[in-house]
Design a binder for these strands. Structure first.
Length: 484
RNA sequence: GCCGUCGUAGCUCAGCUGGUAGAGCAGCGGACUUUUAAUCCGAAGCGCGUGGGUUCGAGCCCCACCGACGGCACCA
């Protein structure tokens, strides 16, 4: 140890690394077998009384999180994914040399420990260390052991630091994972099969959004990153797979906000011989199942059916404008202007409707709500309503003022689909950058005959936000988009 | 893209109306058969986001840029 120049925190750790090697200790060994989760140890001794010693030995592994005391006896905290446990280090147990080695370890080092369980005088379940092994030297100081990491930028850019410092952060992503696996379980149990469709697509579609474009060198052509998996999944319904789902990443080249990340995880599932009302029931069932499975205890009741209202009714109720009476841009624009609402010049009729919904309806939909029956103009892939050809059989689901799902009776008439694409083409020509491109190959698929089908897509990230009570999507995406 | 706020030691934060920077934790040295965020003593550690400018003097004032956050715009 040099005695003139003070070591900074990084240099001190490097020096300890060197000293470990000099002492014949491998700072990065290959394996540590037989460790049990700390939570399992705690469970085993849950009813151990204060001050009582056992003769049960346990092997655990994790990160050194705190140290109290030194000299002849010290306490250390070890943390693994399942929890935290106190270690008691005693010189009479370990001998002077091993004791010194153990106490010379840095917070953040990964350690494997054998120890005997006992309950301390203060009533804390602890392991008296009988043996230990350095499993990985940490060369970078961990965040403050008490305050943790609070700088959001650092938390998102270096999520590992956030996770290693924060049990809450770990719990959040564990809940997210359990949510996804519960969704899979539900669908698997109900006859759905999981499939994978292209992310790199020659033509994008299935949603209203601007895509990312990339390039394939060998094929010598541009490809799009998918904005949805819808069209491919419905081709699988044509193919007779009957019930399919895909959980995967979609990419939309749009703004970033507390509810938008440029890449996000979406699940879509399609069920042959079902309509959108079946889909609505199944969606409610699925949400009830998932929230039970993850032990959701938030403020929203997902065990009940969702509120339902029609889209047109929801707009009229809140703005007094009846979009069914104003079915062209001119007329709707005038009606909005009459109410003193702004009417963006370049907006097409569908965009004005979208404006009314997102500004005046969506924010009010805090309780789980399904908005039913959308105008055909803004739903080019949905089947016409059986009672009103100007509408489609479609619903969107909302919670906490946020859209979480979009579903419909799928359009399976290839001629009608062709006309819808034509309309989209016209919208694109009038400046709608999100109009859906004409997909000939999809029409061709429909011509083989697609059974009546119900389908839905919903955002996993937004669902996770709602079920974990997070305000922003960045909290629930491990590595959210950041500028360079 | 626009407006506002913010960017100080590894981490969490102070820094009054401009006078060349501090604390706690962590780290380092030492003491103590000891604990539950912080035992005690001691010695360290900061290019104050980047680049300009004003000033005798700038972490504090001005400009530009970068990044983050919030709002708006945009966006299922």
């Amino acid at each position: 140890m040099s005695d003139e120049q003070p070591l900074d925190v990084f240099a001190a750790r490097r020096q300890k690394l060197t000293e470990l090697r000099a002492a014949g200790v491998e700072p990065f060994p290959w394996v540590f077998s037989g460790a049990e989760p700390i939570a399992a140890v705690r469970e085993r001794h849950a009813d151990l009384e204060v001050g009582v010693e056992t003769s049960v030995s346990h092997r655990v592994a994790g990160r050194l999180a705190a140290r109290r005391g030194q000299g002849k006896m010290a306490f250390l905290d070890l943390v693994d994914r399942s929890g935290r446990i106190q270690l008691q280090a005693r010189v009479d147990e370990l001998g002077a040399q091993r004791m010194e080695l153990l106490l010379s370890l840095d917070l953040g080092d990964i350690v494997g420990v054998d120890g005997v369980a006992f309950n301390s005088r203060r009533g804390e379940l602890s392991l008296r260390v009988t043996g230990f092994e350095v499993l990985a030297k940490s060369l970078r100081p961990p965040p403050d052991k008490h305050h943790g990491l609070t700088d959001v930028e650092t938390r998102f850019r270096h999520r590992e630091a956030d996770l290693l410092a924060s049990e809450e952060a770990r719990a959040l992503f564990i809940t997210r994972a359990r949510m996804i696996s519960a969704i899979r379980r539900y669908l698997d149990q109900n006859g759905f099969i999981e499939v994978e469709t292209p992310i790199l697509q020659p033509l994008y579609g299935g949603a209203a959004a601007r895509p990312f474009v990339t390039h394939h060198n060998e094929l010598g052509r541009d490809l799009y990153l998918r904005i949805a998996s819808e069209l491919y999944l419905k081709r699988l319904i044509v193919g007779g797979l009957e019930r399919v789902y895909e959980i995967g990443r979609n990419f939309r080249n749009e703004g970033v906000s507390h509810k938008h990340n440029p890449e996000f995880t979406m699940i879509e599932y399609y069920e042959a011989y079902a309509d959108y009302l079946d889909v609505a029931r199944r969606f409610e069932q699925l949400m009830a199942f998932v929230t039970r499975e993850i032990g959701y205890e938030g403020p929203v009741d997902f065990q009940r059916p969702w509120h339902r209202e029609t889209l047109a009714g929801s707009i009229e109720r809140r703005t007094g404008i009846d979009i069914e009476r104003h079915r062209d841009r001119e007329s709707l624009g005038a009606a909005m202007a009459a109410k003193g609402l702004p009417v963006p010049e370049t907006d097409t009729w569908p965009q004005l409707v979208d404006e009314l919904v997102s500004k005046h309806v969506e924010p009010t939909l805090v309780e789980p709500t399904l908005l039913m029956d959308y105008p055909v103009e803004i739903s080019p892939l949905a089947k016409r309503h059986r009672d009103d050809p100007r509408l489609v059989e479609r619903f969107e689901a909302f919670v906490n003022g946020m859209e979480v799902a979009n579903a419909f009776s799928e359009l399976n008439d290839p001629d009608d689909q062709r006309e819808r694409f034509e309309q989209q083409r016209a919208l694109a020509a009038s400046g709608d950058e999100e109009a859906q491109p004409y997909d000939e190959s999809y029409i061709r698929a429909l011509e083989y005959g697609m059974p009546p089908t119900g389908g839905i897509g919903f955002g996993i990230d937004r669902m996770a936000m709602i079920l974990t009570g997070q305000r922003t999507i960045r909290e629930i995406v491990l590595f959210p988009a950041m500028r360079d």
